[in-house]
C-alpha cells in the first residue's frame, strides 16, 4: 500500500476560554487518508471536525501531536503543506471585485503553480468546470451556483494532491449539493486524497470510502461503511453514529439502566 497523503498522530488542540477555562476541542486524533480516497469526518456540530481540518490546513497550530500532508509536518513546514492542499469550506469565500479568471490566476500564482503553465491551467479549469460564459465577469455579479464552481476551481487551481472539504454543502441547495458531490467523486477518481467533513449521514454514506466518527474531539471509530456495520450490528449510518456516541457519552437514562442491570 502507498504511503498516506495525510496522516495525523495524537493530534490535539486545546483552547482557553475565559468562561469555560481550557477546552480540548480535538483530542488525540489519529487519521490517515490515501491517494484516491475520500475520508469522511462525520460528527455533530462542535464535534471538532473543523478544528481538525484547520490544523491540517495550518490555519490553526496543534497544541500537541503531529500531522503530515505529503510528508510535510504542519508545524515545521506549513507553507509546503498549504502548497500541497486545497481547502474549501462554506466560509472560504471569493474576492468579489475580481473576475473568475483573475481569481484562478491569483490562486494558481500564489500557491506556486509553475508560472509557464498557469494560463493553460486556467483554460483547463474554465473548460472543466463550465466557467467559460462568466470567466471574465466579476465574482460579485455571479449567481451562487456559478460562485460555487469558481470556488472549487480555485481550490484545485494549483492541482494539489490533497483536498479538504469542510462541510461544503452546508449552504447549498439540493441540486448544487449533488453537483458538488459529483465533482468531489471525480477528483477522488483522479487520485486526490480527500478529507470531507459533514454532519449529514446520507452524504457520508454516498460519498466516503472510509468514515471517521468524531465526537467531542475524539475519533470513536474509523472504517468503511461495511466495517462499521459489522462492528456495530447496525445498518444505517445514523444508527452506527448514535451507537458510538452513546458508548462515549451515555445519556442519563442509559446510565440509570446500566445501574439497574448491575447484579
Amino acid at each position: 500500500m502507498t504511503d498516506p497523503f495525510v496522516e495525523t498522530r495524537n493530534l490535539t488542540k486545546t483552547f482557553y476560554e475565559e468562561s469555560r477555562g481550557e477546552v480540548r476541542a480535538v483530542d488525540s486524533v489519529d487519521l490517515t487518508c490515501r491517494s484516491g480516497e475520500i475520508l469522511g469526518l462525520l460528527g455533530a456540530n462542535g464535534a471538532g471536525k473543523t478544528t481538525t481540518l484547520r490544523m491540517l490546513s495550518t490555519v490553526l497550530r496543534p497544541t500537541s501531536g503531529e500531522a503530515w500532508v505529503m510528508g510535510h509536518e504542519v508545524r515545521k513546514d506549513p507553507e509546503r503543506v498549504r502548497e500541497n492542499l486545497g481547502f474549501y469550506s462554506a466560509s472560504t469565500a471569493l474576492y468579489p471585485k475580481i473576475t473568475a479568471r483573475e481569481t484562478l490566476r491569483f490562486f494558481a500564482q500564489v500557491n506556486r503553480f509553475p508560472r509557464e503553465r498557469i494560463e493553460a491551467r486556467i483554460e483547463e479549469l474554465i473548460d472543466r468546470f463550465g466557467i467559460g460564459d462568466f470567466a471574465n465577469s466579476r465574482v460579485e455579479k455571479l449567481s451562487s451556483g456559478m460562485k460555487q464552481k469558481v470556488s472549487i476551481a480555485r481550490t484545485v487551481a494549483h492541482d494539489p494532491p490533497v483536498l479538504i472539504f469542510d462541510e461544503p454543502t452546508v449552504a447549498l441547495d439540493v441540486l448544487n449539493a449533488i453537483e458538488l458531490r459529483q465533482i468531489i467523486g471525480r477528483l477522488r477518481d483522479e487520485g486526490k486524497a480527500i478529507l470531507f467533513s459533514t454532519h449529514i449521514m446520507s452524504e457520508a454514506e454516498q460519498l466516503c470510502d472510509r468514515i471517521a466518527i468524531i465526537h467531542q474531539g475524539r475519533i470513536l471509530a474509523v472504517g468503511t461503511l461495511d466495517e462499521l456495520r459489522k462492528s456495530t450490528g447496525h445498518h444505517y449510518l445514523e444508527e452506527i453514529f448514535v451507537h458510538f456516541a452513546r458508548v462515549r457519552d451515555p445519556s442519563e437514562a442509559e446510565v440509570e439502566s446500566l445501574r439497574r442491570d448491575r447484579p
Binding site: 490555519v59 507553507e79 509546503r80 469550506s89 466560509s91 469565500a93 471569493l94 474576492y95
Partner: peptide
C-alpha cells in the same frame, strides 16, 4: 466581512 480571510490563510504563502 467578505469571508475571504480563511481563504487567504490557506494559500501557500507564509
Amino acid at each position: 466581512e467578505r469571508g475571504t480571510w480563511e481563504t487567504l490563510m490557506t494559500v501557500a504563502a507564509p
